[in-house]
Amino acid sequence: MPNHVEACLTEELLTLLRQERYVTLSTIDHETNAPSVSAISWLYAMDSKTVRFCVESRSAILDNLKQNNQIVITFIGSGSTYAISGRGTIISEEVEDMPIKLGLIECHVEEVKDIMFYGAKIVNDPQFEKTYDAEAALKLDNQVMDAMKKESHE
């Protein structure tokens, strides 16, 4: 049985990607041309064809995207595992009014694929907790989410 493929995020997946969750981001390493995978949590689905995320401004992800803008975002939800393939555009290398230096990236969704292996389902979504000051983490998370949701960035 082939895995289900969509050209955009479904309503169910759109809802999931409007909540903080653990995802992995795959890019092509700018020095080795090998796959590079990073775990991120600052991600927000703007609409069914657009996903934004933030990473530290010093992250190799930014350098990788400057050379090759192909990305894959992988996440677990709704009992399965999904891969969102698309093209990444650096909206800002340094988001204004942030206590830390963050780059903002936008993914233009080209394909959403259910990649779960046959005959299985995920019974528990991954969970994580921030290991630094909870109040500071919440404040920073809210600032980053607000920045990602802005319609325009200069």
Rank of each mutant, 00 (worst) to 15 (best):
C54F: 00
H30G: 10
A137Y: 02
N142Q: 15
D146C: 02
I100S: 12
T81R: 05
A34H: 06
D63I: 02
E31A: 12
E96Y: 00
V112R: 01
Q70A: 11
V144E: 06
A34T: 05
D141W: 03
E6F: 05
G103W: 00
E111P: 03
H4M: 12
F128K: 05
D141S: 15
E12N: 13
F117I: 14
S26C: 15
I90N: 08
A7Q: 08
S48H: 07
A120M: 10
T32R: 07
E135H: 05
S78M: 03
P35H: 05
E31S: 14
A136P: 02
N68C: 14
S57Y: 01
L140S: 06
H108C: 07
V55G: 09
C107F: 00
S92K: 07
A60E: 07
T89I: 08
G88P: 03
E20L: 07
E31I: 03
G119M: 03
H153Y: 08
L140H: 04
Q143Y: 05
D63A: 15
I28N: 08
G119I: 01
A7E: 14
Y82Q: 12
L140E: 11
S41Y: 07
D29H: 09
E110H: 05
L13P: 10
M46Q: 09
I105A: 09
A7G: 11
A134W: 01
D29W: 00
S85H: 11
K149G: 12
N124A: 14
I84V: 15
S36I: 03
T81I: 15
L16Y: 02
K101T: 13
L140K: 02
R18W: 02
D97F: 03
M98Y: 03
L140G: 05
C107Y: 00
K101M: 05
A137S: 14
L65P: 04
E110K: 04
E129S: 13
E106F: 01
S78E: 09
L62H: 05
S48L: 00
I28V: 15
W42F: 12
S48P: 01
G88Q: 07
I91T: 06
K101L: 05
M148I: 08
P99T: 12
E96T: 06
L140C: 04
V144N: 08
D63P: 01
R87H: 09
L138R: 09
V112E: 01
E151T: 12
K101N: 09
K130A: 06
I76F: 01
D141H: 07
A34P: 02
T27I: 08
T50A: 08
G119E: 04
L43I: 15
A134S: 11
H153R: 06
R52T: 10
D114K: 08
M1A: 13
V72K: 03
E11I: 01
N33P: 04
Q19G: 07
Y118R: 10
A39I: 09
D146K: 11
P2Y: 01
K130D: 06
